[in-house]
C-alpha cells in the first residue's frame, strides 16, 4: 500500500510538468502580453511611449525573451526557490498573493464537500430504499432543481433572503467591522453567519448530482443476492442496508472527490464574484484578463496539483473501502 502511494506520487511529477507546460502555452496564446494591455490602458489616458521606452520596459519585465526561456526561468524558480514569479499587476510576489487567497478557498471548498456528503448520503439512501415514494419524488424534484439553477442566481437569491429577512450584512466572509481584526470568538461566529451562503450555493449542484448517483448505484446493489443472504441471517433491515449494499454503493461517492475537489475550487469563480468572496477564483479571472501570466500560470498549476491530489486521495480511500481494489 505504501509502495503504491509512493509510486503514485512519483508518477505525478511528469503529469505536473505536462500541466505546467500546457497551461503556460495557453496563457501565452492570446496575441500580445502584459505590456500591450498596460499600454492600451495608458493610451486611454493619453500617455504614450516611444518605441525605445517600450523595448526597455519589455526587457525589464523579461518579456523580450522567447517563450521557452520564459517558461524555463519560471519553472526553475518554482523548483529551486519556491518562487512562483512576480505579479505585474499587483507588484507583489505571486506566492504571497496565492497563499493569501488559498486559505479561504480551501476552507470554503472543504466545507462545501462536507455539506455535499452530509446532505446527499442520507437523502440518496432514502431515495433508493423507498424508490417511487413521495419522499423520493420530492428529493428527485429538488435534486433536479439544484442541478438546473445556475449558481449565481442561487447566490443572489440567498443574499437577498439573508439580507431582507435576517438583516445580515451580505457579501464577503466577514461583516465590515471584523475584516481587519485578528481572529477571535466573535469574529468566528460572524464567519459562521456568512459562510453558509457560499457553502450552500457551491454545494447544491454537487449534492444533487451525488444523490442521483447514489440512488442509481444503491438501486442496483439492493437486488443483489448478498443482500438477501444478509436478510436471511436475521439482521435488522437498517443494518442489512447500511452494512452491505450502501458500503458497496459508496465507491463512486468516494471517487467523486477526484472531480469534486477541483470543480469546487475552480467552479466557484462566478459565485465568488457575486458574493465578493476573498477566494482564488476572482483573482485568477483578473489575472487572465490582464495577461498577468505568472500569476495565472501559477494558479492553473496549483489547480492541477489539487486535481492530482484529489485523485490520489480518492484512490487511496477507495482502496481502503474496497478490498478488491486493494489487491489488484
Amino acid at each position: 500500500m505504501l509502495g503504491y502511494i509512493i509510486q503514485r506520487v512519483f508518477l505525478m511529477v511528469p503529469t505536473m510538468l505536462g500541466i505546467s507546460i500546457i497551461s503556460f502555452i495557453i496563457i501565452q496564446l492570446p496575441p500580445g502580453d502584459y505590456l500591450t494591455s498596460v499600454l492600451a490602458a495608458m493610451a486611454d489616458s493619453d500617455v504614450t511611449f516611444t518605441a525605445d521606452q517600450i523595448a526597455r520596459m519589455r526587457e525589464n519585465y523579461g518579456l523580450d525573451e522567447p517563450m521557452y526561456m520564459q517558461y524555463i526561468q519560471w519553472i526553475w524558480g518554482i523548483v529551486s526557490r519556491g518562487d512562483f514569479g512576480y505579479s505585474f499587476e499587483w507588484n507583489r510576489p505571486v506566492s504571497e498573493l496565492i497563499w493569501e487567497r488559498m486559505g479561504a478557498t480551501l476552507s470554503i471548498s472543504f466545507l462545501s464537500l462536507l455539506f455535499v456528503w452530509a446532505v446527499s448520503l442520507p437523502i440518496g439512501i432514502y431515495s433508493a430504499v423507498r424508490r417511487h415514494s413521495i419522499g423520493d419524488h420530492i428529493a428527485t424534484l429538488f435534486g433536479f432543481l439544484g442541478l438546473a439553477i445556475p449558481n449565481f442566481i442561487l447566490a443572489l437569491t440567498l443574499m437577498y433572503v439573508s439580507f431582507r429577512y435576517f438583516g445580515q450584512s451580505v457579501g464577503g466572509l466577514y461583516s465590515p467591522e471584523f475584516v481587519e481584526q485578528a481572529m477571535s470568538w466573535p469574529k468566528f461566529v460572524d464567519l459562521l453567519k456568512h459562510v453558509w451562503v457560499p457553502v450552500v450555493v457551491i454545494g447544491t449542484a454537487g449534492t444533487a448530482a451525488l444523490i442521483r448517483i447514489l440512488r442509481a448505484n444503491l438501486t442496483d446493489e439492493l437486488n443483489k443476492p448478498y443482500v438477501l443472504t444478509a436478510r436471511a441471517k436475521g439482521l435488522p433491515e437498517h443494518t442489512v442496508i447500511l452494512r452491505y449494499p450502501v458500503r458497496i454503493a459508496l465507491n463512486p461517492f468516494v471517487s467523486a472527490i477526484g472531480w469534486v475537489l477541483p470543480q469546487l475550487i475552480s467552479g466557484i469563480t462566478i459565485t465568488a464574484i457575486v458574493l465578493n468572496l476573498p477566494t482564488a477564483g476572482p483573482l485568477l479571472l483578473r489575472a487572465l484578463v490582464a495577461q498577468d501570466m505568472y500569476l495565472a500560470g501559477s494558479f492553473i498549476l496549483l489547480m492541477g496539483v489539487l486535481t492530482l491530489v484529489g485523485m490520489l486521495l480518492s484512490d487511496i480511500l477507495l482502496a481502503l473501502l474496497d478490498p478488491r481494489i486493494r489487491f489488484h
Binding site: K224, P225, Y226, L228, T229, Y244, D322, R324
Partner: peptide, 8 residues
C-alpha cells in the same frame, strides 16, 4: 459468486 459480500 454473488451471495457473499465482496467487501467483507
Amino acid at each position: 459468486m454473488s451471495s457473499l459480500s465482496p467487501v467483507h
